[in-house]
Nucleic acid binder design. Structure first.
Length: 442
RNA sequence: GUGGCUGUAGCUCAGUUGGCAGAGCACCGGGUUGUGGUCCCGGUUGUCGUGGGUUCAAUUCCCAUCAGUCACCCCA
């Protein structure tokens, strides 16, 4: 039996990293609930036709198959696949349960998702997303699109991570503009523009003429739009100055102005209107978001989403929505890789109770019980080794306190092994400083 | 999924033009007979990613595979 090896794209963290992850998830969850989003979990699998409803992600969907399944059997639309995001399952859930839900429906969902892509730093095949969405029946007020970045801004600012910049665009602006200048294939144009940062304007212009059927003048106009970026609503003037008009363009401009104005009031500096942002899944129809970790821009967006009008519809009833999702695994992977996220100790334990002798272990157990009853994470030393060894057991794990049960008449004593200070104490009342109670993430 | 680069101890890395595998840090034991960290002495780190092939002999050369990473694709 050879040594097991990792599976590409399926990260497994250390306990210290998992504690950091749990801390991060707790803060994110707290923020989501503070904005009134209700928790939801959906199953890991969806029927394939649900997953593929929206286009060309088929190759990255993992299929679920029984070992004993008939290999020649139909693997059609009713086959099951692991979900590759949380928005599509959510849309399905809304349709399925519309009768029980109150609209507008606000929910958050923090779950694993799976994508069969080639892994590299910050890109995994199994990863955790923390997603919020708001859906309404028939129509969804545009102000919800302005709320998304505020929630995310609060959530991410509650974490010990570098500041973020949320880049916002609106697909109606791009599409309306492209139509306004007469581009035949707006989607190809979007894809080309999206590469602006990577390959530069000259090659994007080439791409535009090659794949989107643009003339030189059209490519120039498209690039001029893509290069517009502003920390406030002034982007609209810049767009208007280009002299293109189209109803869809005006609609998009009005919506993005509202997002930017709201952001400017509640979270100055958080959002940037960036008209080159095109990304996200292809079901987005309005506002789109992408998020850069400042200092880690090269490694991609750690949080993105947008408005979708057609994802959930059943017959005549439509449920337009808007959502955004934090790529928790990517965020953590990047920061772990950079050594930028640490925790003060790799175990929750605050106190190790020393064991004087195996015959006296019950005494130590009683001390531990008294401490735990008051919320102090406590373990009893694994063996009645020499006290030096027991102290070292704590030291190796970063556990700050070792408790020595008193012998005979002598009182119990607790030692802060960082300072060496040792004082007599009673398990019923002793309290560590608040900063030592739990591991601190920074 | 396509292509490039990389893979030696827990970590950071040496090394062999093919000849029984090394250093520092970390870890373990002792000095220190029940209070760690400093210091001194000693010890173990290992299927040289894995599996084949060539060879008297492979960690070294060849092939495949796995993993990591980069680019493409796409995206959190």
């Amino acid at each position: 039996m050879s040594k097991p090896t990792p599976i590409s794209g399926f990260p497994e963290w250390t306990p210290a990293q998992r504690m950091i992850e749990q801390h991060v998830l707790e803060r994110i969850r707290d923020t989501f609930e503070r904005y009134g989003f209700a928790p939801l979990e959906t199953r890991a699998v969806e029927p394939l036709d649900q997953l593929l409803r929206k286009g060309e992600t088929s190759k990255e969907v993992y299929l679920l198959r029984r070992l004993q399944a008939d290999p020649d059997g139909p693997a059609g639309d009713d086959a099951l696949g692991l979900h590759f995001d949380l928005t599509v399952p959510f849309a399905r859930y809304v349709l399925e349960n519309a009768g029980k839900l109150q609209f507008p429906f606000r929910r958050y969902q923090i779950q694993k998702v799976w994508r069969g892509e080639r892994p590299q730093e910050g890109r995994y095949r199994e990863f955790l997303q923390a997603d919020i969405d708001i859906v309404d029946r028939d129509t969804l007020a545009p102000h919800h699109e302005a709320e998304m970045p505020l929630v995310i801004g609060d959530a991410l600012r509650s974490l010990p991570i570098p500041p973020v910049r949320i880049q916002v665009n609106n697909r109606k602006i791009c599409e309306g503009f492209y139509r306004g200048v007469g581009i035949s294939d707006p989607e190809a144009a979007l894809r080309a523009v999206d590469k602006l940062d990577k390959i530069g304007p000259a090659r994007v212009a080439d791409l535009l003429t090659a794949t989107a059927g643009a003339t030189e003048a059209q490519a120039k106009a498209v690039l001029a739009l893509a290069e517009i970026s502003a920390p406030d609503a002034s982007f609209a003037d810049a767009v208007n100055a280009l002299g293109v008009s189209h109803p869809l363009l005006d609609e998009g401009l009005a919506e993005l102005v509202q997002v930017m104005q709201t952001a400017a009031e509640h979270a100055p500096g958080l959002c940037v209107a960036d008209l080159r942002i095109a990304r996200g899944l292809d079901y987005y129809t309005g506002t789109v978001y992408e998020t850069q970790l400042i200092g880690y821009e090269r490694l991609g967006s750690i949080c993105s989403g947008g408005r979708y009008d057609n994802l959930a519809s059943a017959g005549a009833v439509a449920f337009p929505g808007v959502g955004i999702s934090i790529g928790v695994t990517r965020l953590l992977g990047l920061l772990f890789g950079a050594g930028a996220l640490t925790i003060s100790r790799p175990v929750p334990t605050c106190v190790v109770v020393a064991v004087t002798s195996e015959a006296q272990r019950a005494v130590s157990n009683r001390v531990a019980e008294a401490l735990r009853a008051r919320g102090i994470c406590t373990e009893v030393a694994p063996s009645a080794a020499k006290f030096g060894k027991q102290i070292r057991y704590a030291e190796r794990r970063g556990i700050p306190y070792v408790w020595f049960p008193g012998t005979d008449e002598g009182a119990d004593e607790v030692k802060d092994i960082r300072t060496g200070a040792q004082v007599s104490a009673r398990a019923e009342v002793w309290q560590p400083p608040a900063a030592d109670l739990r591991p601190v993430v920074s």
